[in-house]
C-alpha cells in the first residue's frame, strides 16, 4: 500500500543526485534510519500491537471455545442469549435505519446550500461523540424515567420508555447519531452541487435528482457510515446499560447479557456470546478496509 508513495519519490531523487557533482550517497542513508533503528521501531510496533490489541482479541475466541464446541453452542442457544441477540438486532435495525435516513437529510441540508451557522451545525452533529455513553443514557432517564419530566405522564398513558426497548433504541440512536452524516458531509461538500443543478435544470424533480444523481455518487461513503453505525449500535454498552433495567430475556442486549454472565462467573458462556460481537468487529474491519480501497481514502482523495 505505502509502496506507491515512497517509490514515486525515488526516480526524482536519483535524477537529483546525478545532477550533483558529489558521488550520490547510498539512498537508504538519507531516506531512512540505520538498519538497527528500523528493526527496533518495527519490533516495538509489533510488540505493542500484539500485547494490547491482538492478545485481547485472540483471548475472546480461545476462552469461548475453552470447554469445546458443545458448550459454545449451548451458550448461544440459551433462551436468554437468543433473546439478547433478537433485541440487539432490533435495536440495530431501528437506529441504523433512522440514522441513515436522517444522515442523508442532514448531509443534503448542510452540503447543498449556503447558510449562516453551517459550521456550528456540523459541530453539533458531531457532538454525541464527545459525550460519555453513561451521560447519553442519563439524559433519557431524566426525560422519560419514573422521576423524569415526562415520566409521570407516560406512566399514566401506559407507555414505558425507560427500562424497555424504546429507551434502549433512543440511547443507541444518540450514541450513533454522527456516524452516517460525518462520512457523507465531507464527500458531498467536495462534490458540490453542479451535477444536481444540471439534473434539476433538465427538469428532474428534487427527489428524482437525489435518487439518480446524489445517491449513486455517495453510495460507498454511505455504506461505510452504515457499517460503522451498525457496529457501534450492536456493541453499545454504557448508554444502554443505564436505560435498560437489565431484565433477563427482555431488556438485555448482547453486551448486557455478556456482563451478566461474566458477573455470574459463567466465563465461558460470556466469552461465547462475546465471540459473536468480536466476529462482527472483525467482519466490519474487513469490509471497512475493502471500502477504503474503493473510496481511495488512504491515497489522499
Amino acid at each position: 500500500m505505502s509502496v506507491i508513495a515512497p517509490t514515486e519519490g525515488v526516480p526524482y531523487a536519483v535524477e537529483h543526485f546525478h545532477a550533483a557533482t558529489a558521488p550520490p550517497p547510498p539512498l537508504e542513508d538519507i531516506h531512512s534510519e540505520p538498519r538497527l533503528v528500523r528493526a527496533v521501531v518495527i519490533a516495538l510496533a509489533i510488540l505493542f500491537m500484539g500485547l494490547f490489541i491482538l492478545l485481547p482479541l485472540a483471548n475472546v475466541f480461545v476462552q469461548a471455545f475453552s470447554k469445546g464446541w458443545a458448550a459454545y453452542g449451548a451458550a448461544l442457544v440459551d433462551p436468554d442469549a437468543l433473546a439478547a441477540v433478537r433485541l440487539t438486532l432490533l435495536i440495530a435495525a431501528i437506529s441504523v435505519a433512522t440514522n441513515t435516513v436522517m444522515g442523508l437529510v442532514m448531509a443534503w441540508a448542510i452540503t447543498k446550500f449556503e447558510f449562516t451557522g453551517k459550521s456550528l451545525l456540523i459541530t453539533l452533529v458531531d457532538l454525541p461523540f464527545s459525550v460519555s455513553p453513561v451521560i447519553a443514557g442519563l439524559v433519557f432517564v431524566l426525560l422519560f424515567g419514573a422521576q423524569g419530566w415526562f415520566g409521570p405522564w407516560l406512566i399514566d398513558h401506559g407507555w414505558k420508555i425507560i427500562f424497555a426497548w424504546p429507551g434502549i433504541a433512543l440511547a443507541t440512536i444518540f450514541v450513533t447519531f454522527p456516524f452516517v452524516a460525518r462520512e457523507l458531509i465531507p464527500l458531498m461538500q467536495e462534490q458540490g452541487t453542479q451535477e444536481e443543478e444540471a439534473a434539476v435544470t433538465l427538469g428532474a424533480s428534487g427527489w428524482r435528482t437525489f435518487l439518480k444523481v446524489t445517491l449513486p455518487n455517495v453510495k460507498w461513503a454511505l455504506l461505510y457510515g452504515v457499517l460503522l453505525c451498525n457496529a457501534r449500535a450492536m456493541g453499545e454498552f454504557g448508554a444502554v446499560s443505564v436505560v435498560s433495567g437489565h431484565v433477563r430475556g427482555e431488556t438485555n442486549t448482547m453486551p448486557l447479557h455478556i456482563e451478566i454472565l461474566y458477573n455470574e462467573y459463567q466465563f465461558q458462556a460470556s466469552f461465547a456470546v462475546a465471540s459473536l460481537l468480536a466476529l462482527l468487529a472483525v467482519v466490519t474491519l474487513l469490509a471497512k478496509t475493502l471500502l477504503e480501497a474503493r473510496l481511495g481514502r488512504k491515497g489522499g482523495h
Binding site: M1, A45, I46, M49, I53, L54, P56, L57, N59, V60, Q63, P133, L228, A231, M234, G235, E236, F237, G238, M254, P255, L256, I258, E259, Y262, F267, S270, F271, A274, L277, A278, A281, V282, T284, L285, L286, K288, T289
Partner: peptide, 20 residues
C-alpha cells in the same frame, strides 16, 4: 498491523473489558 489498529474502535467495549 494497519488493519488491527482499528480493533478498539470496532470491538464492543464490554467485549474488550472482559477480554482485558
Amino acid at each position: 498491523l494497519d488493519a488491527l489498529v482499528d480493533i478498539p474502535f470496532a470491538l464492543p467495549t464490554a467485549v474488550a473489558g472482559i477480554a482485558l
